[in-house]
Design a protein around this nucleic acid. Sequence first.
DNA 1: CGTTAGTTTGACCTGTATCAAAGCAGGTGG
DNA 2: CCACCTGCTTTGATACAGGTCAAACTAACG
Lengths: 258, 258
Amino acid sequence: MLRLLNEGLSMDALRRAPKPQFSPLHSKLNGFARLSADEAELLLEPPSDRRIHGARDPILEGGSRQVRLVSSGWVGAVRVLADGRRQILQVAIPGDIVQSPLLADGHVVALTAARTTDAAPLLRRALSDEGEPSNLRIAWRLSRDEDQRNLLAQIVRLGSLSAYERTANLIHEVLIRHRRAGLGDGRRITWPITQEVLADIVGLSIVHVNRVLQQLRRDGLIELRAGYLAVQDVERLASAGFAPAAAAANDAAGGLSA
Amino acid sequence: MLRLLNEGLSMDALRRAPKPQFSPLHSKLNGFARLSADEAELLLEPPSDRRIHGARDPILEGGSRQVRLVSSGWVGAVRVLADGRRQILQVAIPGDIVQSPLLADGHVVALTAARTTDAAPLLRRALSDEGEPSNLRIAWRLSRDEDQRNLLAQIVRLGSLSAYERTANLIHEVLIRHRRAGLGDGRRITWPITQEVLADIVGLSIVHVNRVLQQLRRDGLIELRAGYLAVQDVERLASAGFAPAAAAANDAAGGLSA
DNA sequence: CGTTAGTTTGACCTGTATCAAAGCAGGTGG
DNA sequence: CCACCTGCTTTGATACAGGTCAAACTAACG
């Protein structure tokens, strides 16, 4: 067990991991469609309007038209009901771009301490009409499809899965997304959110989330402490969460309602 | 009560209601942005590839790139889990356009007897680059935003609402959408789905859906029988389902992840 | 060190699922 | 026109997943 701990979850190991050469956004897009040097450079230009947010800080209010790139921390699109219940609609990690969720009483908040920048100039550059069907555009499109897929996955989680399955499923999704963004090493990632936030994502009570996490630990599916998460057997976690097999990840895209 | 029944739910009254002059799609889009005569005409051209589906028939398979306009009946984007659990991700009524939900094991099926046509030519015409920022394009965009909003609403329903609230909320949404499409009279609509389908939408068991419906009836929120639904007090239904006030319907649009 | 935010534990309660069976149509064939 | 299906709705009895309440524990932090 000690051995497992050492190999599995070690903040030091994670910290010592080679610094990624590319930004999370780059890694993600490059994974969807190989980017040329020129295209890569577009993503590198200095970001505008850097902002630092504390956990719980609002980032975008209701009708905001802004678009922001998350550079560190987790961010969430949230809907708050009149009586205080809160549902996190969607989670964004570094490399993701968020905009306000349209919904009455919807907004974007920092789920942890986080940093964001204005993504508008970046998008303008990247999607300018010049390059024609550039790979960057293709990647952008696939990335949006992926976001939509994740949104639908959230519906399945909440509508059809048990507490245990939901939690495993979400953790799996987050792990895969970190991998795509070049964060962590594919098995270990930082895990900055509180159990309360997790509860608001998966639609459970804090207490029950706590118990489910313990069960996942007992089952050897995850190791989780001090802000770090490790997964020994990603496939096993995936199937515990009824996630589609990893192989099937590169299938068709799209979303309902053209 | 009898009086209420007569005024409230009467299949005859609904049948006798003046036939709408416009197609559901037209009503919906025209509600988002007033359409010119020319634009309206684009929507009228004879539809191609009409198809008739029985309840449960598949309409679009997994990776299909097709886009179909629902002309009658209800249609759903569905994900089926390995063990048979089924989650309806999104519902489409006449006037809605569906495409396959990207998701592994996702597809589009007829939730009731239904008719659809190929929406591709229609979209090509309507969105051709000529008209510039035509109202039709604007309406189309707003309509898509609305779809996205409904998707997020589904997440809130499943993640944060009780069975009773979920059901009220869904019925309210469907009622409003019928109104937009010019179907029913704003208070009464056809209700062609079985309780099993409803259960798969709101993530409950059939039996419990049945009990919740009875409670909604007892509370005087809905009348429901023989394929017809009537709502006396739409506002009351809305608040039972934690739906945003009707007035707030025309707010900003968008979705997370630009 | 005291305070505060987060996690964990225990006891208990309730909403919703499950199982089983009985009503109730509408449709078909005799 | 009846008798029988078959699919859907309704009811009852029972089980359990997950919520709620309350309190103890832990760790970070000034």
